[in-house]
Nucleic acid binder design. Structure first.
Lengths: 388, 388
DNA sequence: CCTTACTTTGTGCAATGGATAAACAAACTT
DNA sequence: AAGTTTGTTTATCCATTGCACAAAGTAAGG
């Protein structure tokens, strides 16, 4: 049995169009919406009155006249409910409570939670509970929880492997759903970041982009036609284990010369060792050294930039995206990486690709991963809400 | 102004569903179609009668009774029109005339046409004209022409660069449209092959696959959710220039250690040189040597298989597809490549990927590229036909 | 300041057209 | 003869549309 098409579907789709328009270009009048969407004024009026009944939008009062009757402006009711987004890091848990437009209402951070799944889950639960407790009252309450996790996540929301946390086959989504009785979405951290950047960050203007999450390891989130592409099982974007040197050193994954051995935070720290710098090196220390013009730090970063660029070239050749966003921890070193990344790409990419591609870095002030998963929850909620 | 939804759209979509069903599972009765699609019997009856009027389907007579009145079976009118697909190779032009189901009615081959664009275009024109002239008469006649070309093709159907033909910036689509006054589609050869395999070949059962066209160079066609993914400009799938060894030899593209320096037909022939085999080596000669158990040929092929596998691992990690199809010239050496390709992938891929992925080779009896572009033309035609 | 003509906004209502359910006729099986 | 299956017909439902219209504004002239 297939999806069939009938008038109910038409109505649902048109209602979605109207709501999307109000969400994206507010305030807007009924007449303006009708004209922009190509729908009849009456149709828009009737859909709008339903949306008002459902408390998803509201009338904000009269707008400016353009030579006739003053329009009644419509606003999306961003406080109709609240969403929670959690970025589950290796040594932190960061959570946000957002309104339905993704504006941050409240943020909470837990440093150095226990590594074991049991401990981490307890911390995540208590952080989420705090966020829930401090949410303002609203028609729909908390509409869902999104979590970004640093590992391989299947389409059922199980974390199959999170090497840096030592987790294997944990049913994170199911456990959280049981704890809170709310819709839960669990996504790979790179996918979450990709969507966060696409909705709220430097990827706002593009619908085809690839977000490179360069942290301890490297992962990628792939946005095609404005939607996350997850592959057949949800494992797409494992570009950290793309080999760029098949004669290179062994990687933990079994392959040789994986990209993340050359261009991740981990690799940068290892390079520090070979440069004879002190042990216990961190990305922050390296950046500080570079800021004070330390020659070794500068050339380590230059090399990392070149290696980042080499992998990005491979990605560009395969996907032909409109934009590449470099995010996560290494984005903090933008100032020292950017030139070498772009130079490498310009030098070694087919000329056709170069003219049109945009290479950007994340703005670290934006918690892209947490906002991305929060946005997923919001979209699910709205889709379900308009279902009938 | 956006696309808006109304009853006409509903009708068009339902009509498409009915026609698709009849195209894919024929013969089928009205009642059966209604049940399978979840549409009302009356709706199906009315859509079917329109499709019959448009000569896209016809009644083939009574079928088997299942305990009551015998059904009237419906068939897709595969002879309502004919489509042309051309595979433009480096030293051949191969064209097919197909019915609307992609069955080959006639094939024509031109060996060693002139290399210059002017010469090749003249040969292509005359081959297409011959196919047109021998098409049976039909309600819609020739419904379109598809061409697969070995090079970088943008979304406007210009061949921007075909290194092995020496073409640069030729407006192939426009020139053919002017010559025949028919809808023309020009696609990259790998994209054409991918779609051909997906529709008619070993990819029939899958909707997420990557076709590796391993010929003189290497390209890939990417099928996501049953549709060709072309990237923002149409340049996706340039995986031949994915570097698998950034310290490796220089490639003509400017990069180092590109995959096609290790795993293409060209590279295999070069390897022959380093093994001290005679000059003027060809893939066919190497295969013949391997068939007679020549040690050098066997180990050359083994190495090529391993190198093929290494690049495929990178592709799997990035895309997480359901299937990889190795096609074009090197597929002829399947017997000597298959084991090493699969072995390499098993050894070096993350275990999650391994369980579910299907690694296949093209069946060379199937002219995938020509059939793929022919299928594109057919789909365009049907989409336009149902537009009103 | 008032009047008049014109614009723009938003609602109400009949018409349109496509899907649906149910009744029904035709054709077949048991 | 009774029951089944197929395909058509008919009345009904429902969402969009176009148009009329009321409400609420602007602009210009006296």
């Amino acid at each position: 049995m297939q999806i069939t098409w009938n008038q109910q579907v038409v109505k649902k789709e048109n209602k979605t169009l109207v709501l999307d328009l109000i969400m994206n270009s507010f305030p807007i009048s009924r007449a303006d919406a009708a004209q922009k969407l190509g729908l009849n004024k009456g149709t828009v009026s009737s859909l709008v009155s339903e949306l008002i009944d459902e408390k998803l939008i509201f009338e904000s009062g009269p707008g400016e006249s353009s030579g006739g009757r003053r329009p009644v402006m419509l606003l999306f009711n961003q406080n109709a409910g609240y969403s929670i987004g959690v970025d589950l890091g290796v040594n932190y848990i960061y959570g946000v409570l957002t309104d339905l437009l993704g504006n941050i209402i409240l943020e909470k951070n837990t440093e150095n939670p226990g590594l074991s799944y049991k401990d981490a889950l307890r911390e995540v639960n208590s952080l989420i509970q705090e966020l829930i407790d401090s949410a303002p009252s609203s028609p729909y309450g908390i509409i869902g929880i999104g979590v970004g996790a640093p590992g391989i996540v299947n389409k059922e929301g199980d974390v199959l492997l999170a090497p840096n946390l030592g987790w294997r086959n944990v049913s994170l989504k199911r456990d959280l759903e049981h704890a809170f009785n709310l819709p839960v979405i669990v996504e790979n951290e790179a996918n979450a970041g990709a969507y966060g950047e696409k909705k709220f960050g430097v990827g706002k203007d593009y619908d085809n982009l690839i977000y490179i999450s360069a942290g301890i390891g490297i992962g990628a989130g792939i946005i095609i036609n404005g939607e996350l592409y997850k592959g057949i099982n949800g494992y797409s974007g494992e570009v950290g284990h793309m080999s760029i040197d098949f004669n290179g050193p062994k990687c933990s994954c079994g392959n040789n010369g994986c990209w993340e051995l050359y261009a991740s935070e981990q690799s940068l720290i290892s390079k520090a060792g070979s440069f004879g710098l002190e042990n216990e090196m961190t990305l922050e220390k390296i950046i500080n050294l570079a800021a004070s013009e330390d020659e070794d730090a500068l050339s380590m970063l230059k090399e990392t930039g070149r290696h980042l660029g080499l992998g990005i070239i491979n990605i560009i050749n395969a996907f032909n995206p409109k934009q590449i966003i470099i995010g996560n921890r290494l984005a903090a070193a933008k100032e020292w990486l950017s030139w070498d990344v772009k130079q490498t790409i310009n030098k070694y990419t087919l000329p056709f690709h170069q003219t049109e591609i945009d290479i950007s870095f994340s703005n670290l002030a934006l918690p892209a991963a947490a906002l991305g998963v929060s946005a997923f929850s919001i979209e699910n909620f709205i889709k379900n809400q308009l279902q009938i």
